[in-house]
Every structure is written in structure tokens, then in C-alpha cells.
Nucleic acid binder design. Sequence first.
DNA 1: TTGCCTGCAAAGACTTTGCAGAGTT
DNA 2: AACTCTGCAAAGTCTTTGCAGGCAA
Lengths: 141, 141
Amino acid sequence: MKSDYPMRMTRQRRVILDELRKMHTHPTADELYQGVRRRIPSISLATVYRNLKLLASTGFITEMQTVGAQRRYEGNVDNHYHLMCVACGRVDDATVPPDHDLQEAVDRTTGYKILSHRIEFLGVCPECSKTSANHPSDSGI
Amino acid sequence: MKSDYPMRMTRQRRVILDELRKMHTHPTADELYQGVRRRIPSISLATVYRNLKLLASTGFITEMQTVGAQRRYEGNVDNHYHLMCVACGRVDDATVPPDHDLQEAVDRTTGYKILSHRIEFLGVCPECSKTSANHPSDSGI
DNA sequence: TTGCCTGCAAAGACTTTGCAGAGTT
DNA sequence: AACTCTGCAAAGTCTTTGCAGGCAA
């Protein structure tokens, strides 16, 4: 999945990367596409998908694989955890630092050679807590 | 997404639930379908999907939403973490207990009202560690 | 100039849904 | 008998891919 050929910095690529880094909303491919289109109206969704995949495989961005079927992307490649609102679906970065001890403990006790781990905290975001509805409808576990 | 009408225990439903509980492999809908078909050859994949969704919404099973776009299901509804092999894709349950303190810490410091959390440890399973290839090709984060 | 990149459209993978008949309670 | 459930097929959603021309290096 990693490529050997040199990656050209086309306008589409640059704008996609730039927009993603500006957004802190962990957008889906389509959400990012909407943003990029404001700067390059003729860009196609396929190009966005292709570039997200390439940028992720080369480590420029991170491809999240969580909640629901739709993938989300983020420009922040540092290791960190995520907060997800079960009411509105938004995703934020968690502020707690990565727990290396936990990872090591699992590595020692499971037979798996653990390379990394990810944590998602599911809850209700500040906005949604305010807004009446304390009735989170559907979440994953 | 939760239904109000009574859930009938049809043969299809019973077998789907039974097979899922017997499998400890966290199967996808299609994998489970293959297993169920051995007992009910005429069952349709749509029925499997419908029942998995219903069973998950009523708390009989757990719908995992992780790795790649394809959903996985499990009969174990207790709160626990997962181990995923980046080489072969298999998923196991982790043995470490849920960390309530971590969850509370995030709850106190983020503004989110945290309801639950999930952790996935990514690594190489015992099988794949043995089998030459220490070249995990693609993973998430 | 080379050959990676792009837009377009079509194909793919996975999941959901409409319908009419079947089965559970 | 009442009403949910099923199988089938079609539709839907998200993502990938083939192709011919375009553009970065």
C-alpha cells in the first residue's frame, strides 16, 4: 500500500492537504471535498479519495477507521485519542496523553506483538449537553 | 433505531444468535452468513443483516465498528477491549480489564459527558509472528 | 519529454429496503 | 387471526478503478 514513486505536489494535492490541516473536524472524504471545491470547483470526488489514500499511506495525514462505515481523515498525525459525540457525530481530539504502559502490559500478556493502539471515548459533547436532548439515539458500543 | 414491537424468536434469528455466540472470531455479516447457511441453506444475507442489526439494537450482541469499512459482530456483550492483527485481520478479545479511571479522567477534563470508551490494540498475532512475515502491510493509525 | 495525475463515468463492496408470501404468537 | 419476519431483488451509500488527456518535474 506504500508507493515507491515520487509524489508530485499537484494543486489538487496541495489544496486537499491544506484544507484538511485547517479543518479540525476530522472530516469525511465528502466533507473535505465540499471544502476543497470552493477553491477548485472542477475537482472530482475521486481525486479527493485518491489523494487521501496516498497522503495517508505516506504519513502526511491520518486515516481514522471508526464509527459507522464512513471513514474520517485528519491532518494531525501525532498519536492521540478521540472523543466522539453520540448525539451529533462530531469528533474531537482527546487531551490525555497516550498510555504506553497500557500498551506494554497488553503486549506482555497477550501473545500479540502490539504496535499501537487507539482509544475512542463516546459521549455527549458540550454543545449537545446544552441543547436539551439528552437522548443519544444510536451509537456503536 | 430501537424497536417497540415484540421480537419473535424465529428459527433464523435463533440460529444467527447461536452461531455468533459459538464463533469467537468477531465475524463480519458475510462470514456469519456462511456459517448460518450450513444450518439453514435457504437463508438470505439480507435476513442476516436485518437480524444482526435488530439483535444489536436490543443488546443481545455487539456491533463493532472498526478496521476498514466492514462491520464485525460479537456475541460477547461485556465491556472489553480488542486486539487486531494488522497482518491477517483477525480480532481477539483483550484480557486487560476496562479502565474506568481513564474514562473518568477524560470526563472531568474535556467537557464531554463520557458514556463509554473502546480500545483497539493493533499488532501482530501469535500465528503471524511465527509465520515469517514481519511485514505488516497496511493498518489504520 | 516522461509518466504520474486528473476528471469522468462505470464498477465494486457492503448494507439497506420494498414487496408479497410465510410463520410465530 | 394479527402482525412480524423472510427471501428475493433492487436500490443505496461509500469507495475504487479504467481510460484518455493534462501537467509537474
